[in-house]
Each structure stands twice: as C-alpha cells, then as structure tokens.
Design a protein around this nucleic acid. Structure first.
Length: 892
DNA sequence: CCCGTCACG
DNA sequence: ACGTACGTGACGGGA
C-alpha cells in the first residue's frame, strides 16, 4: 500500500521568489484597493500548479517569525547584509497566508526559528512516522534534508518549474556526497546572501573536493596539518572558527520546539466558494474564470451558464443557409502570424446567434465567388468584428472588400479603457466579465508549443465562440461608450480612422533598395575604419557594442572617471560620453555608435522589410496601444526615421514616390501641442500670442525673462524658453528643466515660478486637472478619450508625481492626437471628392506624408492645410506648413 | 527575455 | 526627504 503523503512548503523562500520573479512588473499588479499582488500571483500559481494536483494527506506552509532567531543570537551578522524586505512584499504576507488557508493548508511560524527549521523538524517526524515527505522551496540548502523518504522540490529560475531531489540527485550535483554533507560544504564555502563567511578562497567547487576527501569539517581539521603548505591551508587554519560556525548556521534544525504535530496538519482541500470573494478583492480575474468554469460563482453573481453555440463546418451543402442571415454578421478570421500584411488565413467563421456560425479552413470561399464573399462585401449588412483593420487588410489580400463594419470589439474596448488592449479576443472578453470564450493561449498554446488545432471540432468551436462573443458583447459595450460620452469618439473618429489606416498601410511607401545598398557599403567601410581606430586607441579588440566591455575599457583600463552608473554597471550613454570628448577614443565611439545605429536599425532594418512584390514597406499602425491616443508604428516603425542629424536624415532619400514624376509632399502642424495647451487652459496671454502668430518661444522668453519689446531675443534665451514650454507640456519639475537647459535647480525653479505667474491660466489649469484626476480617477482629451490614473492618490511620492505629470500631459498630447486623426479622415474623404490621385501614406504624430502627381501639387499645397487647420475649432488658430520634394529627404 | 541605448514627435 | 520631464519601437548584448 502506498505511503501517506506529507507536503511541506517553505513560505518565505517562495514568497520572495514569487515577488522577484515579477519584480519588473510590480506596479502592474495592483488591486483596486492599492495592494500589490505580484507575489500573490506567483504564489497562487504555485499552489495551483504543485499543491492542488498533489492532494497530500497532510500539508503545512512554514513561515519565518521575525528578524531575530537563534542564528542571529549566536552570530549577530547572520543575514546582516539583507536589504529590508520591500514594503510592496511585506503587505502581501497576510493575504498570502489567507490564500494558503483557503487552499486548505495550515500555516505555522515559531518565534526564534526560521521556516527551514520548522520544515526540518516536521520532515524528520514525518519520515519517522512512515510518510512520504515532499518539501517545496527555493532554498538550495534545503537539500541537506533529503532522505529515502524525503524529497526536495527546488524551484528553478521562475517559480513554476521545479527540480526534484532524491539522494541520487543530490549526489549528482554534490560530486557523490550525501545530503547530510551539504552543511559541511556550506561551512567551508560560506553564504554571502546569508552573510556568513566560511573560509576565504574556498568556493563550492573546492569545498566539494575537500569534503569528498575528508568527509566532514571536523575530520578535515584533524588532518589539516598533513596538508601541503599553501595559501588554502593557511586560510583553513586561520578561519577554523568561521568554518565551524558557518557549518552550524547552515545546519537546518530537526528538533525545533514546535507546538504542533502531524495530527494538526490534515489537508482540507480547496475552499472554492470562499476563494471567490478573496480573488475578487485581489482582482484575480483569471482565477475567477477558472472557478466559474468549475461551477463556482459569487453568491450574488448572475448565474453563469455556458451559452449554447450553434456552429457547423461550412460546406457546399449548407452554404445556402447563409442566405438566411439578415441585419448582422459576426466575423472572425484566424491568421498564422501577427503581421497581417504577410500572414495567411488559416480559418474563418461567419454567422450570427440566430442562424448559427459557419466555420472553415478553406479560403476558396473567400477567393472565389461564394455566399460568404457576398455577405462580407454586402455594405448593408452590419458586421461585428474584432480588429477591423487587420481583418480588412487580410481579406483584401484574398480579394474581399470588407464593408459595413459597425462594431469593432478591440477598438471599443480600448476606448473604454486604454489598458484593455490585448490582441487576444478571449482576454478582452474576460476583461468585460464575459467568460464563454477561451483565450488563444488556452486553445493554441504558446511559444514553441503554439499550434492551430488539427481537429476541426476544437478549432471551429473556438472560432465560433469568438464570433459569438463579439455579438454578445456589443450591446453592453456600446451602452458603456454612450455612458462615458465616447460614442462620437468611436463612430466619428476611431472607427472611420481604422479604414483610413488600412488604406495607408496597404498603399505602403516605396523604398529605393539600391540607394540603401549603396549607403550600406559606404557605412560598413566607415564602420570598420572606426572600429580599427577604436581598437588601436584601446590597445586591444573588444565588442564596442557591449556596454559592459566598453565600460571596462573606458573606466577601468583607461582610468576615465565614471560620471553615472546604471543598475547593471557604468553608464556609457551619449549624455555621459559627451562630457568626455577630450579623450580621443570617446569621440570615435560616439561616431561609431551613431553610424551603427543608422546602419543596423535603418539601412539593414528597412532592407529586411521591403516587400518583394512591390518594393514597398507596409507598416502597421497600432491603433489600440498608446496610453494617450497616439498611433504607434511597427514592422517597420516609420515614425522614427532619422531627421535631426544629417547622416541619418539621408535615410529619408530612400523613401520615394511610387510613380515616375511624382513628389513626396508633407504637411505638419506647427506647435500643435502648445496651441492645444493655450486652448484647454484658456490662458489669455498664450492665446494672444498665437492669435497674433508670434514666435511662441520668443514670446515666452520675453515674458519669463522680462525682455522689453524693443529689444531682440538672444538665441540662448529663446532656447531656454523653448525648453520651458516643453517642460510645461510634459509636467514640469525644476530638476528636469535644470538638467535640460544646463542650469542649477534653484534657477530652474525661479524660471518656472515666473512662468506660472506670467501664464496664470496655465497654473490654474494644472492645479485643476490634477484635482479632477483625483476626483474622477481619470483625465480626458477634447474628444473624450479617457486615461485612468490609478496612482493619482498613491502614498508613494514617485508614483503619485508621475500620475500628476501624466494628468497634465495626457489631455495635451491626446487632444493633439484627436485633432490629427480627425484631419486624416477628412483628408481621405477630400482626396476622393476632389477626384485626386494623391495618396496619403504616413502619419508621424503631427505630420502627414503623401505622394502626389506633379499636376496636383498646387492643389495639395492649398487643400491639405485647409483640411488640417479646420479639423477642429479651437480658441487659437491651428497652423500648417507644407513641403515637397523628389524624396522624403527633399520634402523639407 | 531584459537592459541600455538611441531614433522619432 | 523623496528622485524626476511626456509618448513610442528596434537593435545588440548578455544572462
């Protein structure tokens, strides 16, 4: 008969592991009550993944009781170099213990003892009582407890993967030693993380070798005199006491005076119903979904019944049934990659709840005349989709002109809350408390395991669920849009824009590959010259692109003074290097850096993404990503093509019109963010300056530096005033301004105060917007785009300050984004109504780029500014400047 | 996969 | 006393 099982869990060790596994995202895991939950998430995964399937007979989670233990009493420095446990973790301990209880497991801690000792003691008792004992921990030293009946499960890097240690595995990593000998090794080796010393110069390798030979520390010292003279022998003798002390510190106790025994440890099983309010409090949505799928729902929840799903595999027998579809069609198309300009359609589904859903992998239904194709191209039939832009572009490649989209789940979800921007339909649905659909990861797997199911039953059911979800969510989400006064933002801006963007992306922009190739060979020659020069200046070869190696060369070998550090080493950023240009190698490195950036990101990078079929690049604009409402551009990013430095700027000469004799034409808003600032703040002084079409930075300089009208403004003061204007838009701080204009903090502070006195409307507005953010929890743009600021009331100064700057910046940056989006929609319409052949190709936040036939140039110079500056009516005028040229470079 | 760096508005 | 300008994406290096 199988032995009874006893599961012992090292609470502290695993809490720390969980916390640091997600340390980078500590601020992304915060409950609505402001509690950090990253460690709780990790710990919960651990319970789910290891404990729950284990179903032990008895179980315990052991915790440290506090800072002092018998170890600190015997050795004051024990764990003396540990940083204080971060507050973000401390606050998670109590809920974590509650989580343990709700999973049916007892917690235990004991004054003066560490979790290890509790586990050691119970494990020994369990071993003696005939249990199969399993210990789960992140602490490698626990392996000393292993016996034939005690297995140690050690978490690897993350926390969900584990290595299992039985005596054989311990022997394997410890060169044939027994678990009991682990403390002998540790005694010699010491442990920097616990701050006990061991013997200097002896690491794990040597310690194992010595214990292999002498078996233990006491016997080693019996024979120490026989060792041949060496530094090691000297150290062993000198640090004898440390070795014995460290050995004791490393030894886990098996005789702690516990007040509990095995009878108290019966595993209770999971208290499902009680977990619901607990998970709700922590905002553990995924866990709630899992509970719901098991039939556990909150007492006050609407009953979750899995909706029935009507679906069939589309075939030539049943395709006629599609003709019964009227009013509305839900559509979902699955691609085999995220870049929809290249990816293939691997499956699709159309239908609605009344008639049912029709799924297929056969793209002939799309490429050839079929009922499906007719429905998709029928403009009267309302389509409900997820990611209309991707769908439009993908279908267009199969010859289908999708029309009549009224509901885009992804887009609507993003507008309701910019954080709900997952490209996974299931995840988005779960955000809206709709659980009748799984995520792609759940169905397809991820990483190397990703696979579209070969089984039609599985694949089509998932597709059907997705399509059905879109339809099910539409009424509630459209209502929420209305409630948040965002209906017009959706119907008049974002939804029409999505099709404008689809057009621009499909149009693409032609890139002259020969030109890039010429640049490539010129640059690589120059790069190897610079490389040789740098090797010479350094005295040896090294990887210039490695910040680590570069730091060693500059700050250790060459003895330059390090001016700034990053958390991983010396900073070698431009900012730092520019202060050391008197050293020749630094100058060379700066040149090398600049050139290799252009080469790798722009020359090589662009060449890689030119489509063979049309010699164009087709970016994808992400419409549902940024926190402010701007677009972003990927694959390639065409919103950060160099312009400020001449060498880089020449990249732009590779961007050319797609027809002989055409031109590249650009139109940009002048100072749009400051104009928006003048509008939203209602500041009369700033508005006057714009109404008079003054040079705004000069005008600001005049006011904040008190320069009489008769006097000219020096370029330096104008530059400073410009920095102040930028600072205001970004949510200014004296430190930031000082750094930017190279003055001291006090002066910067004075400048800001003067600015806010001179522009009192701006001052009043910044105070008001922060107040508003605190009251409603969000800020808005002129088109009612919304951004929630969860940290606006944070106790932590940094988090709160950041939220306050965001509160000021988002209405400005976001409203500017609203304006150009409106202009783009109007522009596309105007091109059509004027019967122009010019094409809008790119958007770069405050500028639009077109390709234009020669005969339309004059018209465009007039029409484009007209459309752009009348996109919205502000209290100050909008100003637009236009340029044209044979290439993008020349359109300046 | 994260970090430092650097390109843009 | 805190540490600090807003919003993005791509690259190479190195765990």
């Amino acid at each position: 008969m199988a032995k009874p099982t006893l599961l012992l869990i090292d609470g502290n060790s695993l809490a720390f592991r969980s916390f640091y596994a997600l340390i980078n995202q500590v601020d992304r895991f915060v409950s609505h009550e402001g509690l950090h939950t990253n460690a709780l998430v990790g710990f919960n995964n651990l319970l789910d993944g290891i404990v729950d399937p284990f179903k032990p007979d008895k179980a315990l989670v052991a915790w440290d009781a506090g800072k002092t233990t018998f170890r600190t009493n015997s050795f004051g420095d024990y764990k003396g170099n540990r940083d204080k446990t971060p507050q973000e973790l401390v606050e998670q301990f109590e809920p974590m213990k509650k989580m343990v209880e709700l999973h049916g497991i007892k917690n235990y801690q004991l004054v003066d003892y560490e979790a290890d000792d509790i586990i050691g003691t119970i494990a020994a008792a369990g071993d003696a009582a005939g249990y199969a004992v399993t210990i789960v921990t992140g602490d490698r030293d626990m392996r000393q407890l292993v016996t034939d009946n005690i297995t140690v499960w050690l978490t690897k890097k993350g926390i969900t993967e584990i290595d299992k240690y039985m005596p054989a595995q311990v022997a394997e990593v410890y060169g044939g030693l027994t678990p009991a000998q682990v403390v002998e090794v540790k005694g010699l080796q010491g442990d920097p993380s616990d701050n006990y010393p061991g013997v200097p110069g002896i690491g794990e390798k040597t310690a194992i070798k010595l214990i292999q030979e002498y078996h233990s520390i006491p016997t080693l010292y019996e024979h120490v005199d026989e060792m041949k003279a060496s530094k090691r022998k000297e150290n062993l003798i000198t640090y004898r006491d440390d070795a014995f002390l460290s050995r004791e510190l490393a030894r886990i106790r098996t005789d702690a005076p516990l007040e509990i025994n095995l009878d108290d440890l019966d595993y209770q099983g999971i208290h499902y119903q009680a977990l619901i309010p607990f998970y709700q409090q922590l905002d553990f949505k995924q866990q709630l979904v899992k509970l719901a799928n098991m039939g556990y729902v909150a007492a006050d929840a609407k009953p979750v019944t899995q909706q029935p799903l009507k679906w069939v595999t589309l075939d030539f027998e049943n395709e006629a049934e599609l003709n019964r579809i009227e009013d509305v069609l839900d559509v979902y198309v699955e691609l085999d990659g995220e870049n929809y300009h290249r990816a293939n359609i691997v499956g699709f589904v159309v239908g609605n709840a009344q008639v049912g859903y029709f799924a297929s992998r056969n793209v002939d239904y799309l490429t050839q005349d079929s009922p499906v194709r007719k429905l998709l191209q029928n403009s009267v039939l309302k389509k409900r989709v997820f990611n209309a832009k991707a769908l439009t572009v993908a279908l267009a490649r199969y010859g289908v002109q999708l029309t009549g989209v009224t509901f885009d789940l992804l887009l609507v979800s993003y507008l309701l809350n910019v954080n709900d921007n997952s490209n996974d339909l299931g995840q988005v649905a779960h955000e809206h408390q709709y659980f009748d659909v799984a995520t792609d990861e759940e169905v397809y797997g991820k990483g190397a395991k990703f696979q579209i199911p070969a089984d039609d039953q599985v694949f089509f059911e998932h597709l059907g669920r997705k399509a059905q979800t879109i339809g099910q969510l539409e009424p509630a989400l459209m209502q929420q849009l209305t409630d948040q006064q965002q209906a017009r933002l959706y119907t008049e801006i974002e939804l029409p824009l999505t099709f404008v963007l689809a057009d621009m992306e499909m149009q693409g922009i032609t890139v002259n590959a020969d030109h890039l190739l010429a640049m490539q060979s010129k640059f690589s020659e120059r790069l190897s010259e610079l490389q040789q020069k740098i090797y010479q200046q350094a005295g040896h070869e090294f990887n210039i692109q490695s910040t680590k190696q570069l730091g060693t060369v500059l700050f250790e070998e060459m003895g330059l003074k390090s001016l700034k550090k990053t958390k991983t080493g010396y900073s070698t950023s431009v900012e730092v290097l520019e202060q050391m240009t008197d050293v020749p190698i630094v100058e060379s490195i700066l040149q090398y850096r600049q050139l290799s950036k252009i080469q790798s990101t722009y020359v090589d990078g662009l060449l890689r993404v030119i489509h063979g079929s049309d010699s164009k690049v087709h970016t994808r604009y992400l419409q549902t990503l940024t926190q402010t409402g701007r677009l972003s551009s990927v694959d390639p990013n065409l919103q950060n093509i160099p312009v400020r430095v001449e060498e880089g700027r020449q990249i732009r000469s590779a961007f050319v019109p797609s027809h002989e004799g055409w031109s590249i034409f650009s139109a940009d808003y002048s100072q749009i963010e400051l104009r928006v600032l003048a509008h939203v703040t209602g500041d009369m002084e700033m508005q006057k300056a714009f109404l008079a079409d003054e040079d705004i930075h000069a005008s600001t300089a005049r006011r904040i530096f008190g320069i009489p009208l008769a006097d000219p403004i020096s370029p330096n003061l104008r530059r400073q005033a410009k920095a102040v204007n930028f600072g205001i838009v970004y949510g200014i701080s004296d430190f930031g301004l000082a750094k930017n204009i190279g003055t001291d903090r006090k002066t910067a502070k004075q400048i800001i105060e003067t600015y806010l006195t001179e522009y009192s409307g701006v001052k009043a507005w910044t105070q008001k917007i922060i107040e508003t953010a605190r009251e409603q929890g969000y800020v808005e743009t002129i088109a009612h785009r919304r951004r929630y600021l969860k940290d606006i009331k944070a106790k932590n100064f940094n988090l709160r300050s950041f939220a306050e700057r965001t509160a000021m910046n988002t209405p400005i940056q976001g409203s500017a984004a609203d304006i150009i989006k409106i202009a783009m929609i109007k522009m596309q319409t105007a091109l059509k109504t004027h019967g122009l052949n010019s094409k809008m190709l790119l958007q770069v936040h405050d500028e639009l780029i077109f390709e234009v036939p020669a005969e339309e140039l004059a018209t465009m110079h007039q029409l484009v500014p007209e459309i752009m500056d009348s996109a919205v009516q502000l209290d100050v005028p909008l100003k637009v400047e236009t340029h044209e040229g044979k290439t993008w470079y020349d359109a300046k």
